[in-house]
Write a protein that binds this DNA or RNA. Structure first.
Lengths: 352, 352
DNA sequence: TTGAAAGCGCTAACAC
DNA sequence: GTGTTAGCGCTTTCAA
């Protein structure tokens, strides 16, 4: 209750506003605004005065006020699907770096959180704030559960989807790994190793998984595997992988190699195989997808497809930049950009 | 340039404002505001009218405007140090869930990004927006490089630090793993296994690392290891771990067990040992800290200290809640809250 | 070139 | 109980 009548010391007063700067510089608010927005028609002298005043006061424009006033602000929002997957961190980093090069501000927010239990749900709070902040563009990274709920955003600003297939009609571009190329790389590698019976574990749990399954089928068909290649359904979890392997073991139809939908699933496959006494790669070869840091650990040494995440991030950023530059109204729909992956061969697929 | 003179179809008009709702409901702006902020003194009938109008129009309060107008908004910001570490995702999830239980909104933003290369830097854009959004509280998760730069935030709103020791004077509470208890758990376990020569790998690269080193020293001193226990400096990276092990091997002073500052370092230790022909655990036992998902992978099977991250997150949230409730001005400085860890024993520390 | 004034969507006194 | 009136910090016509 005790009002401090006098500012006793260097009291933490509230940050200086544009008005403070105007007063200090002896000009009007609008001139200050002009200076800070790169206005051309400002005399050198006044510009100097304003800049000095701002410096002295430690003034920084309030982004929230800007956003409210201008109706939109010049920054692109990067929405990461979840914090668990280090894969996405790479993409985000690369995208942000590329945008920064072009002088674009960014804001990174997460789209999902654990719901206290284990599973993830859309973080509506975050999305709401983001919407109200009126970013000038949106890049989503990874599959986002309630993508449709972003409709008011995607409909009004250029949107680029990275490393997912969430795209609705108004998405400017989707940048993702070329799953067909990736799976063909693995299949070819295994075929070269003399593998003739081949299984894909995955396919459930999302569009990416489905896409990789289709890619697998196409590749083995093209290479004439026929009945000797099939799919054992599983989601992205380790448990799913274990069940799939369990089915293979039970039916006595163990293939010579298993390709998993991603690295985590691959680990599950290896674990299940070894628990059943089948050693990897001797008893059965295994390969994954994503080339996460996991696979490089010597004890794991997992052959995996490297999607080139940094490039995905960079290209997504560039698509964003293009779309923003293209102020013709009809932002050019770039469509899908498939980034060519490469294969990283490690112990899990090589016969000793 | 062609201005669409007439709204052709269900054109994506701009979102309804409080004014639209007021008009639709036939009341004033302020009444609408009152209704949406749980005002008591509103007649049932008007409240209904307002709510219905809002519903019809699809009105949602603009958080940015709220924030600007009210001077602060009722949400706590959760600042995650980096997206790479899944560990932090657990803490964030738990904190958010606890806050949600208490009816607190949250906003999760990342504090760092890759700078295009590999290393992380403070994401100033994100911090700036956050500051301007005027959150009612701040929870930081993990060590944040330029923590000092958050001064204007930490000075004005209650701040809780989770899983780090960044604390400046104005931090309300620091919630982290009890490193002393954790390391003593490992040391005790190894001693029980008959280990007499013991090394700690870590100590460089941050306050947490230093704290764990001190904890190790205290534990081995208390247990009378004397000259038989020492520290081999290394940072958090795998490479650092390899160098440390290299020194041990070169000096021919290989201990019977190595405790690493965290799981990643432990993996580096295992890799280096096995590359040199020393098998784990037979030739040398190894243990880590953090109990990340890595350690549970059977091929790794790393004994590790589980810091109970979900509890860290929950307690941090509760400290925040307490601090916010405590509107006496002098927010009670809770100080440090140490969460008791537990030991998860796996193959890497057990003689076969 | 510069300034005055209106307003972005909302909250918060203060009246009625 | 409910409406009126000022702003929050900034951008943006529109005049001067």
């Amino acid at each position: 209750m005790t009002e401090r009548a006098e500012v006793s010391e260097t009291a933490p007063t509230r940050p200086p506003t544009i008005r403070d700067v105007a007063r200090e510089a002896g000009v009007s608010k609008s001139l200050v605004s002009l200076v800070f927005n790169g206005g051309e028609n400002v005399s050198e002298e006044r510009r100097r005065r304003v800049l000095h005043a701002a410096e002295r006061l430690g003034y920084r424009p309030n982004l929230v006020a800007q956003s409210l006033s201008a109706g939109r602000r010049d920054f692109v929002a990067i929405l990461v699907s979840n914090l668990h997957n280090p894969l996405f961190a790479e993409i985000v980093g690369a995208a942000k770096a590329r945008l920064a090069e072009a002088g674009q501000r960014t804001m990174i927010v997460s789209a999902q959180v654990d719901d206290g239990g284990g599973s993830s749900v859309l973080d509506r709070d975050n999305i709401a704030v983001l919407r109200d902040l009126r970013p000038s563009g949106l890049i989503t990274v990874g599959t986002i559960p309630g993508f449709a709920e972003l409709a008011d955003l995607t409909a009004t600003i250029p949107t680029v989807v990275a490393s997912a297939i969430d795209a609705t009609d108004d998405v400017v571009a989707t940048v993702r790994s070329d799953d067909h190329a990736g799976l063909d790389l693995v299949v070819a590698h295994l075929a070269e190793q003399g593998v003739e019976r081949l299984v894909f574990v995955g396919g459930d749990g999302g569009t990416v998984s489905a896409s990789r399954e289709a890619a697998f089928r196409a590749s083995v068909a093209a290479r004439g595997f026929g009945e000797q290649a099939w799919v054992e359904r599983a989601d992205f979890t380790e448990a799913g992988a274990r069940r799939a392997v369990g089915r293979l073991l039970a039916s006595d139809r163990l293939p010579q190699a298993i390709i998993a939908v991603n690295d985590l699933t691959a680990i599950g496959v290896i674990t299940a195989l070894e628990a059943a006494g089948v050693s990897v790669p001797e008893g059965c070869r295994v390969a994954g997808y994503d080339d996460t840091t996991l696979s490089a650990i010597p004890r794991i040494s997992l052959t995996s497809v490297d999607p080139d995440n940094r490039r995905i991030g960079r290209v997504a950023a560039e698509a964003m930049l293009d779309a923003s530059a293209d102020r013709t109204g009809v932002a050019g729909r770039i469509g899908e950009v498939l980034i060519p992956p490469s294969l990283v061969v490690r112990g899990s697929s090589l016969a000793r």
